[in-house]
Write a protein that binds this DNA or RNA. Structure first.
Lengths: 144, 144
DNA sequence: TTGACTGCAAAGCGTTTGCAACAAA
DNA sequence: TTTGTTGCAAACGCTTTGCAGTCAA
């Protein structure tokens, strides 16, 4: 049973309607496993399949997937807002303020922070897909 | 010498022009020491002074202050994008996904994370004003 | 069959831009 | 005087909405 089938089965059991459009968006996100902008999703579907989905529909579907906690939404500054399937291998990004390079980092780096937030504030952090800004090794930090 | 005077002197020494509008925006941010949306800044100035500044100008001034690393910019989700003077007492926020309550947290909580990012990735994080989403002690986390 | 979803077009909103008038240095 | 800044209006891009037609269940 593929990841896509597993997700679809789960949604169906929740009593959700699985339209062609919803399946196409899910397929794009699962197939690429990448963070995609609304445009990326739209273009991917247009190129892979020979059909297109109206933009408002993509917005509605991504919002619906977010409500089901199946996709994460992250503001990547220059790159815009990206969506990504919440998979097993959760990860985050370092974004260079100078050269816009992004570095993938493992989720475990937040374990300590999560624990502290819960211990000190009884706050259960949901860090699904975080972007941290700063300067990469190749770029001089611009001091004020 | 007040904080406002100190900042203005610094900018002047950088060869920047100090217009009335720039001073008013700075004064709003320094006086409130709060995170303000563009609208908050605009309304504050209108109420305190008997003049108003065009919105595009406020956008330009806040961007300019950001470039001088004098204000931070944070996306607070529901509350929108907020700006705040980067003062001595840097802090961050926990935002509850259920009740929208925000909890202020100290900057020191990120020291460990900063150190790890630099050690493991030679990445110099600029965490000026971060919002972390999750569930507060009064709200049940919504499990998928 | 029926209620939910889609597509279209249009509205909405926050943000940016071009340009002439203006003001700080 | 000169160069950078402001205000206005208009453009912009992304996102949302209303509504009629369509489709999954």
């Amino acid at each position: 049973m593929s990841e896509l089938e597993r997700i679809i089965t789960m949604l169906r059991e929740d009593g959700e309607r699985l339209t062609i459009q919803r399946k196409l968006v899910l397929e794009a996100l699962v197939a690429t496993q990448a963070h995609m902008t609304i445009n990326d999703v739209s273009h991917y579907i247009e190129s892979q399949q020979s059909q297109s989905i109206a933009e408002p529909t993509i917005y509605r579907i991504l919002q619906w997937l977010k409500e089901h906690e199946l996709v994460s939404q992250t503001d990547m500054a220059e790159a815009g807002i990206v969506y990504q399937i919440i998979g097993q291998q959760r990860h985050h990004h370092l974004v260079c303020l100078n050269c816009d390079k992004t570095i993938d980092i493992d989720d475990t780096i937040f374990n300590n922070l999560r624990a502290r937030l819960f211990r000190d504030h009884q706050f259960e952090a949901r860090i699904d897909h975080m972007a941290i800004y700063g300067y990469c090794r190749d770029c001089e930090p611009v001091e004020p």
